[in-house]
């Protein structure tokens, strides 16, 4: 891997961790467990847009490992990894969709993955009702984050290709 690419990927991972910490400082918008902005997911989108599937997976895994260390509780790792994998699969599946829509779909995938882990851990399927709230949040925040990723990509196009 070229040093340039490695550095860019590392910057994405660092940005993801920073956004995660920033986001955990924001008080929850509503009392729905799991409802979050998901700002950190923008780096997965960017890695996927700029480089490809393999690189996006690397950025995602590194980010989840590091942020789980920050979060402290082991159970958060399970939620993050389940959400991350589901989100990643959706991103790969909907390659033809415009970026903002892909982002929203991936956010829904993320929530479905996390609620599934919650259902297994709590042994109660009633947590799936949470999805009604989470899907609304995922569509709104996912689309906005996707639009942000589009804007960043447009401005960074020349830089990413190399000079």
């Amino acid at each position: 891997m070229k040093a340039r690419k490695m550095v860019l990927l590392a910057v994405l991972v660092a940005m993801g961790c920073g956004l995660f910490v920033l986001e955990s400082a924001v008080p929850p918008i509503a009392a729905v467990p799991g409802l979050k902005l998901g700002l950190a997911n923008i780096v997965t989108l960017l890695a996927m847009e700029w480089f490809g599937r393999k690189e996006a997976a690397m950025v995602l895994l590194c980010r989840i490992l590091l942020t789980s260390l920050f979060a402290g509780q082991a159970v958060y790792f399970l939620y993050s990894i389940a959400g991350g994998i589901a989100c990643y699969l959706v991103l790969c599946l909907f390659r033809g969709a415009p970026l903002w829509a892909r982002s929203a779909l991936a956010a829904i995938g993320h929530n479905v993955g996390q609620v599934t882990v919650a259902a297994v851990l709590t042994g109660s399927f009633s947590v799936y009702w949470l999805l009604l709230y989470l899907i609304i949040g995922a569509i709104i925040s996912g689309s906005l984050i996707g639009v942000a990723a589009e804007m960043v990509t447009r401005r960074m196009k020349d830089f990413i290709k190399g000079d």
Binding site: A31, V32, Q73, V75, Y79, T122, S124, S126, W129
Partner: peptide
């Protein structure tokens, strides 16, 4: 740390449960 189950407030009906994810309580 997140105290989300407390913020969910009082429930009396509906399908939404009180969920405390870290302690695995529903």
């Amino acid at each position: 740390p997140d105290q989300l189950c407390i913020k969910q407030g009082k429930i009396k009906g509906g399908a939404l449960s009180i969920v405390c994810l870290p302690n695995r309580v529903t």
